[in-house]
Design a protein around this nucleic acid. Structure first.
Lengths: 348, 348
DNA sequence: CTACCGAACTAGCACGTGCTATTAGCACGA
DNA sequence: TCGTGCTAATAGCACGTGCTAGTTCGGTAG
């Protein structure tokens, strides 16, 4: 038993803290006095180990502070069971959607790898990073129109787009029926007696095009095509505030539908500051029914998207493509639901 | 009799798309007709390959759509160069901080691994997941007071806390001087002529305690201890709105300082809705100077934390502990800066 | 006593990459 | 002819884990 023992010590001072190497299965094996594969068997809960050994191994693992190495596991098994999600960190709606994905992913036995796009990193760079991590599928929240092409990515891993279809090919899409949403908003306002209903546009953001089209169609359906008025805007509070400026400087409508909640909130605060009473002089409708809309102080009438359901469908679609045989691309448009709150009332 | 086919391939149909195995360095090597290590040399940009070969390898890599495998790289090199960041997905301030960390981390040659805490996953579970990924350091934004102990984690990897110190031991802390921030707010309001200045508390959220203490001390310093009034609240819009209800139902002060912007915005909207004119009848001050505060429609006077600087210092602290010899724990408190906007004015 | 069997355990390869050590090939000087 | 020195390229181990194919060992049937 002459232990030649090749000392595999690292240069001790390299890592600042002088921290010990993290314990591995081999360490546990040495500690208990069994072979390394047996430790693997125990930790995986596989068959082939006696109860006594099982106890000793588990105890040693706890003592040493063992933590499974996801890198090695993923490398060896070729299944990382990780799904990447691409989203914009500064869009509350997308963040909310991501939040709802966690329980679904976990239930299906996967993990979520967050790929946040910021001002510094576009969708392309983030996608690349996610794929380097061997994530097995990709959920793209609010896919961008310009630039980044997802077609080649969709050939490597299953891709699901949330919000709108941007990519051709075997890409599933989960969205809400945006046109139906704005139609409900128009219907609601018309039923209150409004005729001069303006619309704050959403630019080229996800869903914006359909929302604008739904507004135009609904106005026409009510014989109010002549009253229709689209003000340029976007999905941010700033853009909503700017749109408010445009409306205030011109003739004020009796109601406004904004392309999303942030925009509606920016608009709302601007007109309130200008002394316009809401909803008595102006009704305001948002879109998304975000947590801001639900605030007691804001209490915004808004079109609700079924966020948990969208998150669930998107994750399910990716996992199906991973575990089941190929199928036709699917495009699900969930019906949104207008939530009436305090910012809408009959016109003066 | 026939050997059991050492086909290490997976069942072809298991993966839904029937997608090919992703290309590796060995594939490139075969394609070009060189050895695998030579491909490694070229892709790493190391010395030891002729320019001609270099070109051929790079071309083949592009053709095959090669993408480095982060798992294998991290496993082999024992340096993932990944920093984990723990933050709450539903706190805009923390999200903003994370966003600012990206360029810093990238500049130092590291990558950011997002560990988002949600309603479904607490700090403990997320920390564990990050460590399984072999992240080399941890930035904890807004560490929780209760439950989760970071001491044992700090013995494995460098830990930095942003917002407040929660953990003893070799943990660096980056925060802003919260007491100084609220003091500036009080000074500003007093200089405008206010005496009845209320404070909406932040509960046990990061920094809240110091902000409250700073308020109390500043009021006392101005001889206004008798006027001091702390209303229970929190860091969310809801809690701000509730605080507004408490203020409205009682005697209204001439000014309110909220513990953070979200709370201030909830409060702001509530009092505006109640017909209180801001700032003419009531001055409002927030904390954080978030993007909501800067909105034209909100235009909230607020105490600004230097978010990019905090992000930079935190990341630098972690990296220093990784690359440099151990040093004493550091606790940096940056001076915040009151930004005066439209929600503060002399009392009526 | 031998043969056999199942439980408990071990040997060893594979995953994709980084890196050190080694070798082939060539030019040059003595 | 033989080294010497250099470049270009290859051999091979290691990282930590999963998993297949053995191997030991005690017990039991023949």
């Amino acid at each position: 038993m002459t232990g030649p023992e090749p000392t595999d010590q690292e240069p001790a001072g390299a890592r600042g803290g002088g921290r010990d190497r993290r314990p591995t299965m081999a360490d546990i094996a040495r500690h208990v006095g069994v072979s390394r594969p047996l430790v693997s068997i125990v930790l995986r809960g596989a068959e082939g180990a006696s109860d006594a050994t099982r106890q000793r191994v588990l105890r040693a693992a706890a003592e040493l502070g063992y933590r499974p190495d996801s890198l090695a596991q993923g490398l060896r098994s070729n299944r990382t069971r990780h799904l990447g999600v691409l989203f914009a960190l500064r869009r509350p709606f997308e963040v909310e959607l991501v939040e709802q994905m966690f329980p679904v992913v976990e239930r299906l036995g996967y993990h979520l790898l967050l790929g946040a796009t910021t001002a510094f990193r576009g969708q392309e760079a983030v996608t690349d990073e996610l794929l380097r991590y061997r994530c097995e599928g990709l959920v793209v929240v609010g896919p961008e129109l310009d630039g980044h092409r997802l077609e080649p990515v969709a050939e490597e891993v299953p891709v699901v787009e949330i919000g709108r279809r941007v990519t051709r090919g075997p890409v599933d899409v989960v969205r809400n029926d945006d046109a139906f949403g704005t139609r409900q908003a128009v219907d609601h306002l018309v039923s209150l007696g409004h005729r001069a209903i303006a619309f704050v546009d959403g630019g080229d953001n996800p869903g914006a095009e359909d929302r604008r089209a739904g507004y135009a169609a609904a106005m026409a359906a009510h014989g109010l095509a002549a009253e229709a008025r689209v003000v340029p805007g976007g999905y941010t509070e700033d853009e909503g505030a700017k749109a408010a400026g445009l409306l205030l400087s011109d003739r004020l409508p009796t109601a406004v539908i904004a392309s999303n909640d942030l925009s509606a909130i920016g608009l709302l605060d601007s007109v309130l500051r200008a002394g316009v009473r809401v909803p008595h002089e102006l009704s305001v409708v948002g879109y998304d029914d975000s947590r801001f809309a639900r605030l007691p102080g804001i209490d915004l009438t808004s079109v609700r998207q079924d966020v948990p359901r969208m998150a669930e469908l998107a994750v399910q679609a990716v996992v199906e493509r991973l575990d089941l045989p190929p199928r036709e691309p699917r495009d699900v448009a969930l019906p949104p639901q207008l939530v009436v709150r305090g910012t809408t009332a009959p016109p003066p």
